[in-house]
């Protein structure tokens, strides 16, 4: 199929050859739930698993994008390449979004070693977009050494990002009233590195001290998250942050934790895929063979209960009917 001058079945080959247009098109197709999505992802998967994934989270306006911009300078100076996925909220009312994280990163727009993609959450509540994980896979297969994900920074962003990233950076600010009492529950547990950004503003040291105290109360842990002050608009402290991220990566690798984390991720992916397939299979069958409407009627009239009806329904389904249109 020809989409905008790009042959669909060449897309993955082009991606692997380093074609930026192919990377961009693939992310769109995946994000739009194109019918080819799963077969494209199948083709991409064998080429993933090489990139190191860094998550950046923190309240709106904490300085996530400006910090990513500065981190990019460090990463590029080391001769590494990077892919960025910057997530902004989709309006629940209009379904539209303003994706503005790029504003702070445009100095890297023409760098062939950097690929930046903005995504709207599109109904996902966890601080990432519905397709962030797949977009990471695209950039991973594309050959980027580091993939950075900037979360939305509201809601439960922390929940999703830890499952997705190898290292998670939590950004706090002195001005944000992010003193210990107001820190969102769960934040202390998810950070591999704490950043106190806007350290040029008063109160930064106090915030850092408070976080350090809380971390020390947690007792001995194999990894003690460092608490680092930065001024991301000037770049101060970003070298220390990059060092800390590398130390964390070394810790993950040496302790075998990286394999653990990634194995857990694979387990989750597999479970999700099995559930997806089972669900699709069931509803295909139900649509084809079983009178759902008549069951609804019966249950509504209290001639049957939904519990036994569901059991009967499942008993009629043949799960072993050959391949389920999942060829790639």
């Amino acid at each position: 199929m020809l989409i905008r001058g790009v042959l669909m079945h060449h897309l993955v080959k082009d991606l692997l050859a380093g074609n930026r247009r192919a990377a961009a098109r693939l992310i769109t197709l995946i994000e739009n739930d194109d019918e080819e999505k799963r077969s494209l992802l199948k083709e991409i998967y064998p080429h993933t698993g090489k990139a190191f994934i860094i998550g950046i989270t923190g309240a709106p306006g904490a300085g996530k994008s400006s910090l990513v911009d500065r981190l990019l300078q460090q990463i590029r100076a080391e001769g590494l390449t990077a892919g960025i996925i910057a997530v902004d909220p989709t309006s629940p009312f209009s379904g539209g979004a303003i994706l503005g994280d790029r504003i702070r990163m445009q100095d890297h727009a023409l760098d062939a070693g950097v690929f930046i993609r903005s995504m709207g959450t599109r109904g996902s509540l966890g601080g990432l977009s519905r397709s962030t994980r797949e977009a990471i896979q695209v950039l991973d297969a594309f050959g980027k050494d580091i993939v950075i994900v900037e979360t939305v920074g509201v809601g439960q962003s922390e929940v999703d990002i830890v499952k997705t990233a190898d290292s998670t950076v939590v950004i706090l600010t002195p001005a944000g009233g992010d003193s210990v009492q107001t820190i969102k529950a769960g934040i202390m547990e998810i950070a591999d590195v704490f950043v106190i950004n806007k350290a040029d503003l008063p109160g930064a040291e106090r915030t850092a001290t408070e976080i350090n105290m809380m971390l020390d109360m947690n007792g001995e842990k194999p990894w003690r998250p460092p608490v680092l002050p930065t001024v991301s608009i000037k770049g101060d402290g970003v070298d220390k942050l990059w060092e800390a991220l590398q130390e964390h990566r070394t810790f993950l690798e040496d302790s075998g934790k990286l394999l653990d984390v990634r194995r857990q991720r694979v387990r989750r992916e597999l479970t999700e895929q099995v559930e997806y397939l089972v669900k699709t299979r069931i509803w295909d069958e139900v649509r084809d063979t079983i009178e759902l409407d008549s069951l609804v009627e019966k249950i509504s009239k209290r001639q049957q209960d939904p519990y036994s009806a569901a059991g009967e329904l499942l008993a009629k389904i043949n799960f072993y009917k050959g391949d389920h249109g999942e060829g790639g």
């Binding site: 247009r21 209009s94 993609r117």
Partner: peptide, 26 residues
Amino acid sequence: RDAGMEVIYTGLHQTPEQVAETALQE
């Protein structure tokens, strides 16, 4: 945005090259 579109905004002073490359990546 209010009409349901996803709008990528890149700020001031973009060079033509930046605009075109951003259009491609996005």
